[in-house]
């Protein structure tokens, strides 16, 4: 195991972790605040990726620029879904909530298929498959952009949560919605905020995916599943936990894949084993509180 290989594996793992974090912080936030598992979360990634793809293909908008547009669009979509659909099932049994979000997911998948066919789509910009060479380590620009974006957006989320009035309100709602209500917090607005952030962050992950990978109508499942693993490992509702769990899974998958024969085939299974072990020892996840 050479040092160069170790460095490269770490870089690969970090960029994967960045993508995981972008997808999962939103999911865990939505769960923390509303106690709803959003099965359509992965579809936000898919829609973000398509938005970025079409903005680029039709109007030549660079993904770095379209990121802003996608964030706005996805914020709007998240708010819309919250006010028109999710709001109605907040007090309903969990099964209804699951059916609703699952239904939203399937609807988006089929809509994407209908509108944009099943073809793989990817954006080709000068930095989409280019890399920065640091000694023996190659850092993909697209994926580094992903890490940077994940750090910035996660950082902003922390600032929001711990430095702003609304962020404090959001944490309060997560801990005790009724007590938050009598603090005079407009709880429905907090729900909208959480869903909007969730959708926007997943959409940002989609932009990264459209540049450094590709997208197709069912790609949301891939990200959704991973995000659920991350969120459960980190502790449902814990943004910090999701960040740490993203790092753990990203690095573990990269190291297993790089240093073990057949590792790429096993990496995912090993992630699940870690998840199971943690859940056995700590049923509420690494940083879960309930």
């Amino acid at each position: 195991m050479s040092l160069a290989l170790l460095a490269q594996a770490t870089a690969n793992g970090l960029s994967l972790a960045g993508l995981y974090a972008l997808v999962s912080v939103g999911l865990t936030l939505v769960f923390g605040v509303m106690r709803i598992l959003n099965f359509a979360h992965g579809e936000f990634v898919m829609l973000g990726a398509y938005a970025s793809f079409w903005l680029f293909t039709l109007w030549g908008l660079d993904p770095l620029a379209s990121l802003a547009v996608v964030l706005v669009l996805m914020t709007g979509l998240g708010a819309l879904i919250q006010t028109t659909l999710v709001k109605r099932v907040l007090a309903a049994p969990h099964l209804n909530q699951i059916l609703l979000t699952f239904g939203i997911a399937v609807t988006f998948q089929n809509l994407a298929l209908l509108l944009w066919t099943g073809d793989l789509r990817a954006i080709k910009v000068w930095y989409s498959a280019s890399s920065l060479t640091l000694g023996p380590v190659s850092l993909s620009l697209g994926r580094t952009f992903g890490i940077g974006l994940a750090m910035i957006l996660t950082g902003l989320l922390y600032l929001l949560l711990f430095r702003t009035e609304y962020g404090r309100a959001l944490r309060a709602v997560a801990q005790d919605p009724e007590a938050a209500l009598v603090m005079g917090i407009p709880i429905q607005r907090v729900y909208i905020l959480a869903m909007a952030i969730g959708a926007a962050y997943a959409g940002a992950a989609g932009v990264v995916a459209s540049v450094s990978m590709f997208t197709y109508p069912l790609i949301g499942f891939l990200f959704g599943l991973k995000a659920f693993c991350v969120v459960i490992l980190g502790g449902l509702g814990s943004v910090f936990g999701a960040t740490v769990a993203s790092l753990i899974l990203g690095l573990v998958e990269s190291f297993v894949g790089t240093f073990f024969a057949q590792g790429s085939s096993w990496a995912e299974a090993i992630s699940f084993v870690i998840l199971l072990l943690v859940l056995l020892l700590r049923p509420k996840g690494l940083f879960g509180v309930e």
């Binding site: 404090r168 944490r171 801990q175 603090m183 917090i185």
Partner: peptide
């Protein structure tokens, strides 16, 4: 709010 500081709890009281 058990996982928030005393100060944060008080500041939440003045959310309105």
């Amino acid at each position: 709010f058990p996982f928030m500081s005393v100060l944060d709890n008080l500041l939440l009281g003045s959310f309105p």
